[in-house]
Design a binder for these strands. Structure first.
Lengths: 257, 257
DNA sequence: AGTCTTATGTGCGCCAGCGCACATAGTGCA
DNA sequence: TGCACTATGTGCGCTGGCGCACATAAGACT
């Protein structure tokens, strides 16, 4: 866990905002225009670096984050330093549900799993809009259930499935949230996420490579055969995807790539 | 998994309602009087039998349930029949958060883990009160975060801890929600909850018995030394308890026994 | 080109938990 | 009292994942 507490700096570049508009995030995209008008002026586009800690376990959240092309892992770190990924958030969600739930903090840490951009919003702004009890409330409640489902399935997966199956699930979750099928992540870091040995990931990844499902070298993983990846994964991936589509249908959003 | 889909029958006995008042449930207890006045007339005291399925995965919830002295397990059942407990709900919570979250159903099944009583409320009544956006909303949001935390910690526990540690955690969760330190549950059923082999539970329980921590025989488990049980448990129990107390302080409720 | 660092491969021995098969002991019921 | 059933104990062999100790290879940096 070599992560910097580094301050997130706002990206001033307007061209960047054009490439990464707020509506690249599905939650933001699904808001009715009225809410967009109120909220969007306060969104700040920021760049997130790999490994960056967005929020620490137990510390009060100041901002919420809406990833566009970045991915954030919610990670629990045990007393002995071992860790386990609880859920993953990409452009389909947000980091910081504890703010509107009332807890202000969580027992898990939020870490950037894939570098990229996200919009951040000052916590109080979100709460203010949430307390209007309109579309945002209902959207975020539904998203909370998606998160709940994802966590539940993570628990199941951790109990019953092999490292190989979990790696498949993890890769699928990642490429679903990325603009292409290219994952930038070392086996060491994946092992940290899954809470398993690095060698275990090496074995599983080697097998997937031999099967022609992925190609990897030194931190670059390319998914070649997505269909086969799904076949080698456990049911957990599908369950979460299905439930997520049921709870958060794309009404206004452009379809996934 | 020998569970009956049995219809829950309302208990007409008034004396029962005196022994099990609604305020025996902490959520109901913490509501302001105004809300109690609106809600309580619609609560039905019902008796729950061991193994009874309160709600099936994927099926629309009709009622929400507020246990008084019963305990409900949220269980995910895999395609191959194997299962895993996701979270547990006693007089500290409710079953059916998916109703106000908007999903109307969950991917998990709710099963009675310990027979007893619960108040049930017709789903629409809960939603109506929730949509007043008052105390109930805030209370249930906080409870949702407790549930989230519990699920997250279950995931961690499944990843990293031994059967013995998990059994300790499970027993602690149970007796915290029961009127005494007497758990009625066979090792077979505990194994189903934890998603492990029955023999594994036998081993772990045998060890705890030899250590003088519990006493058990044929489905009756008595916790003798709670302190030692906590010591033999993993950190997961404490983390959830702590977070739960932080999020849901007892304002009006009587203290735990 | 050479060196350093980082990522990945590999080969141990070890143990927890699994699946199976069966033995034993409470408990209820005829 | 005896029988049947259910809950628990026990003993296999097997496998996946662990911890450790290295070997190798691919970039990165002079």
């Amino acid at each position: 866990m070599t992560t910097e507490p580094s301050a997130t700096q706002a990206a001033p570049d307007l061209k960047l905002a054009a490439i990464h508009p707020p509506i690249a995030n599905r939650l933001l995209c699904e808001l009715p225009d009225e809410v967009k008008l109120r909220l969007f002026p306060h969104l700040e586009l920021i760049e997130l670096k790999l490994g960056q800690v967005i929020s620490e376990a137990g510390s009060k959240l100041r901002y919420v984050y809406f990833p566009t092309d970045s991915i954030i892992s919610l990670l629990y770190v045990m007393e002995n330093g071992a860790s386990a990924e609880i859920a993953v958030v990409g452009n389909d969600g947000m980091v910081g549900v504890a703010l509107f739930m009332g807890g202000e903090s969580t027992t898990s840490r939020a870490v950037v799993q894939s570098a990229g951009f996200a919009y951040r919003l000052f916590g109080q702004r979100l709460k203010d809009e949430f307390n209007r009890h309109g579309a945002l409330l209902h959207l975020l409640l539904r998203y909370s259930q998606v998160l709940l489902t994802q966590m539940a399935q993570t628990a199941v997966c951790n109990r019953h499935h092999s490292i190989e199956q979990q790696l498949c699930r993890w890769l699928l979750l990642s490429i679903d949230r990325l603009p292409n099928d290219h994952v930038l992540m070392t086996q060491e870091l994946i092992a940290n996420m899954l809470g398993v040995r690095r060698e275990g990931v090496t074995d599983a990844a080697g097998k997937l490579q031999r099967l022609g499902i992925i190609n990897y070298s030194r931190g670059h993983i390319e998914v070649i055969d997505r269909a086969l990846l799904e076949k080698n994964s456990c049911e957990c991936y599908g369950v979460v995807l299905h439930e997520s589509e049921r709870l958060m249908p794309r009404n206004h959003c452009c379809k996934a790539r």
